[in-house]
């Protein structure tokens, strides 16, 4: 289960186990990308094939591995910060799950909205454990604001591409997010084999 917000397990292996479990759970597209696509009406085969990770948007697994533990944790935390911002933007466009006084036919499935909220909590939980791990590794931790994203992840401001393009970009972004968590799971897995 995810670490409670704010508390830090003192044991490296317990914490590492939680991080691995979280990364494994959150790399599954059904946890965030799929509900996002349903909410955004992108849930079609021909659109799915266009929902691919944008090259350079996120660090590759090799790059993550090459960062060293503290750099890896900082980059992962910054990436998660970006995802939180993206989720907040999406949720601003949509009603609360409970405030759906609108024709049933047009009502997004309430559970998809709930899954977006759950994903946010999971991210907060993972960030909390990342913070704990960084403390365990003895690194000073000034909370990396989302703007300090991993290299090459935040494109310069451009004119409004339009709602559809934003949806598609959101989709590509989350595709990348799941991939990064899958890579993170791999890297955490390798930590397990060599404690330092």
């Amino acid at each position: 289960s995810m670490a409670a917000m704010g508390s830090c397990p003192g044991d490296f292996h317990v914490l590492l186990g939680q991080l691995q479990k979280q990364a494994h759970a959150m790399q599954d597209p059904s946890s965030l990308l799929d509900p996002y696509m349903r909410i955004q009406g992108l849930d079609f085969p021909q659109l799915r094939e266009h929902c691919t990770e944008r090259p350079g948007a996120f660090p590759s697994e090799g790059a993550l591995r090459g960062l060293g533990r503290r750099g890896f944790l900082r980059t992962l935390d910054a990436t998660l910060g970006l995802v939180l911002r993206r989720l907040a933007a999406v949720q601003q466009q949509l009603p609360e799950a409970g405030r759906l006084g609108r024709p049933p036919a047009a009502r997004p499935r309430a559970q998809d909205l709930e899954m977006l909220k759950m994903a946010r909590l999971n991210i907060l939980g993972l960030r909390n454990n990342i913070f704990c791990m960084s403390r365990l590794l003895g690194s000073s931790w000034d909370v990396a604001e989302p703007t300090q994203a991993a290299p090459g992840t935040s494109p310069p401001p451009t004119p409004d591409p339009g709602a559809f393009q934003r949806k598609l970009e959101g989709c590509r972004f989350l595709r990348g997010y799941h991939r990064v968590l899958s890579s993170a799971g791999q890297v955490f897995g390798e930590w397990g084999k060599s404690p330092s």
Binding site: Q40, G41, Q46, L47, L94, A106, A163, F164
Partner: peptide, 20 residues
Amino acid sequence: SENSGTNVVFMIEDNVCGTV
């Protein structure tokens, strides 16, 4: 429309463009 609007999508060779 759905809350997020109704997508209007045009499929091109290996590209897609659309509006909401």
